[in-house]
């Protein structure tokens, strides 16, 4: 009888210890990253990009990654002298992928926000962005007040548009998707009254899909988009910042725009969107907002 009780107590202790050590391991995993030298030694850098967000990060008909983000990623690989392993990511996974060391850099149209900056380290920005709302031409939403009680607004889980609407318009019903492709199909099918996302993205959608128009071209704060690395990965962060500053001298991101975005947006948006040398006009405003 006594040994039976002892056995139970012992097994409880063992289970408790196991659980504890598991959670410790989970926490220890947090700071998992590769330094600049480790990346160079391995000869491969892992970069997280979108695979369904044309024209910023997408896979073309030949199966190759293309877009504004990818054009920059290619240059990073070239200047580091390493091969690139592209890792396809979804909006909601971007922080996770960095924290678990699945990627070294996230270059997936990642908007700089205060909440995110607590979890990852952002390098200097390379693009401007605000939010926008696209809706069908026959029922254009020109203000968020136009949205009826029963209407749903499509957003993508893990984007700044979602966070903005949850915070500032808690009464608006959101219809959430976890991938761009699904959100776009849902809008085409008329499952929602409108789609809120980065304005770059909704403008591109309206240009590619007749019958849709961007009723709200700019919403919320003027933000920037920057590469992100795992929190505390200073060697890689410093290198990225120097790289972005140096690329400013050759107007690299203007060339990037002309190679990847010109077809979609035309020349009008070039100066609005491109941030050269890490100096964004709206940086201060963005930090003060929120």
């Amino acid at each position: 009888m006594k040994t039976a009780i002892l056995r139970r107590v012992l097994s409880a202790v063992v289970i408790f210890t196991l659980a504890l050590s598991l959670s410790v391991i989970a926490y220890a995993d947090d700071g998992d990253f590769r330094t600049l030298d480790e990346i160079k030694d391995s000869g491969v850098i892992n970069i997280g990009v979108f695979s369904d967000k044309s024209p910023f990060g997408y896979v073309d008909e030949n199966g190759d990654y293309q877009g504004y983000d990818v054009y920059f990623a290619e240059r990073i690989g070239q200047d580091l002298g390493v091969d690139i392993n592209y890792v396809s990511t979804e909006a909601a996974n971007r922080i996770e992928y960095l924290q678990t060391g699945k990627v070294d850099i996230i270059l997936a149209n990642f908007t700089v926000t205060e909440e995110r900056a607590e979890e990852v380290d952002f390098a200097l920005p390379y693009m401007n962005v605000a939010l926008g709302v696209v809706s069908p031409e026959d029922a254009v939403i020109e203000s968020l007040d136009d949205i009826g009680e029963d209407d749903q607004v499509i957003v993508i889980s893990g984007t700044t548009a979602e966070t903005y609407l949850v915070k500032n318009y808690p009464d608006i019903k959101l219809q959430k998707y976890d991938a761009y492709a699904e959100a776009k199909t849902a809008l085409e099918n008329g499952n929602g009254a409108a789609w809120a996302n980065d304005n770059t993205e909704v403008i591109a959608f309206a240009i590619e899909n007749p019958g849709f128009t961007v009723g709200i071209p700019s919403l919320g704060s003027a933000d920037t988009i920057a590469p992100a690395v795992t929190k505390g990965n200073d060697t890689l962060l410093d290198w990225l910042n120097e790289e972005i500053e140096a690329l400013g001298e050759e107007e690299f991101f203007h060339a990037d725009y002309e190679a990847t975005l010109l077809d979609t947006y035309g020349a009008d948006y070039e100066d609005t969107l491109v941030v050269e040398g890490g100096v964004a006009a709206g940086t201060d405003a963005a930090a003060a907002n929120d």
């Binding site: 889980s157 979602e162 959430k176």
Partner: peptide, 17 residues
């Protein structure tokens, strides 16, 4: 777009990490 348990968790992680 159904907010089931899995999606709710993923969604919150995406927003607040």
């Amino acid at each position: 777009s159904l907010m089931d348990l899995m999606f709710t968790a993923k969604d919150l992680i995406g927003m607040y990490a």
